[in-house]
């Protein structure tokens, strides 16, 4: 059996030898389809372009002109301001490592749980799954003050651990539920064959299940990454010193008592979207590649 992903050269998403003899009507249909797809694409890419324009505008332009106008006099100063005022470098670094750590913890812990629930038979599995599902329904703001008290008691206020633990835990239910849908659909034959061969459970989990689930792992990693990267409430509540704040707080550095510097906020938003955009593009390829690796073509 495939030890690890080796054969990833198949490119299933290109139209290969399909359109040989298409009728006139089907061509028209495809044209129409592409028209819709492209229109939708414009709608979806537009926010990013808008954001870049936004970050180059002055406050006056942000609120006066049509939101579609180009910045008349690009305010590159917004970026300079963002880099020099406030500790954006520190915030950036904190965002990166806290996000990476939280995503890793969530995905691996959720995989363990999902594996145990779907691949093993035990009495309480339904109850455990239920606990996680209910966990997803709990509104965050209800837990905020008790959580603050808890961290305060154990001395984790103003400690990045409080952020990582909170982000990890609050994303676990969602991640487990997504994984669950996929695990249910995954063929069990391979794992069962491995059991026959006398593989230990750990070996099966790490060497068969995890590699097989790379597409869904990438999917949940992307979702977790976006959530953690944009997470705000925990950092604002549990962190007080500048040294542990993240980019989302950096954005609020430009919201004032009476005056808000929208251009600078735009610039911070643009800066903060670059790393997740790149990571997203990378992970997004993994979804497809992982498929090729996981499929049982032999």
């Amino acid at each position: 059996m495939s030890e690890l992903a080796t054969d990833r050269r198949t490119t299933p998403n290109l139209s290969a030898g399909e359109g040989s003899k298409k009728s006139y009507w089907s061509k028209l249909g495809y044209g129409f389809l592409y028209l819709i797809l492209s229109a939708f694409a414009v709608i979806q890419i537009y926010p990013l372009i808008w954001l870049v324009f936004f970050s180059l505008k002055s406050n006056q332009e942000v609120f006066g002109m049509s939101p579609f106008s180009l910045p008349q006099d690009p305010q590159w100063g917004n970026y300079v301001k963002v880099w020099t005022q406030g500790n954006i470098g520190v915030y950036f670094f904190n965002s990166v490592w806290m996000t990476v750590l939280s995503v890793f913890l969530t995905v691996i812990l959720a995989s363990f749980v999902t594996f145990a629930i779907t691949r093993m038979h035990w009495k309480l599995s339904g109850l455990v799954l239920g606990l996680f599902m209910v966990g997803y329904m709990i509104p965050l703001h209800s837990t905020l003050i008790p959580l603050f008290n808890f961290y305060n008691t154990i001395g984790l206020i103003d400690n990045p651990l409080s952020i990582i633990l909170s982000q990890t835990t609050f994303n676990l239910p969602l991640t487990i539920m997504i994984l669950l849908g996929f695990y249910k659909a995954f063929p069990r034959e391979i794992e069962e064959a491995a059991v026959m061969d006398g593989c230990s459970v750990h070996r099966i989990f790490f060497q068969i299940t995890l590699p097989m689930t790379i597409p869904v792992l990438s999917t949940t990693a992307i979702i977790n990454m976006i959530y953690n990267w944009n997470e705000f409430v925990f950092v604002n509540t549990f962190i007080s010193s500048d040294q542990w704040k993240t980019l989302t707080i950096g954005i609020n550095n430009f919201v004032g008592q009476y005056l808000t510097d929208w251009g600078a906020i735009g610039a911070t938003l643009v800066i903060s979207i670059v790393p997740i955009l790149l990571t997203f593009l990378f992970l997004s390829n993994k979804i497809v590649e992982g498929m090729a690796a996981g499929s049982v073509k032999g």
């Binding site: 005056l259 808000t260 600078a264």
Partner: peptide, 9 residues
Amino acid sequence: HLWPEGSAK
């Protein structure tokens, strides 16, 4: 306090 450097220098 509530005067961040960025918006209330």
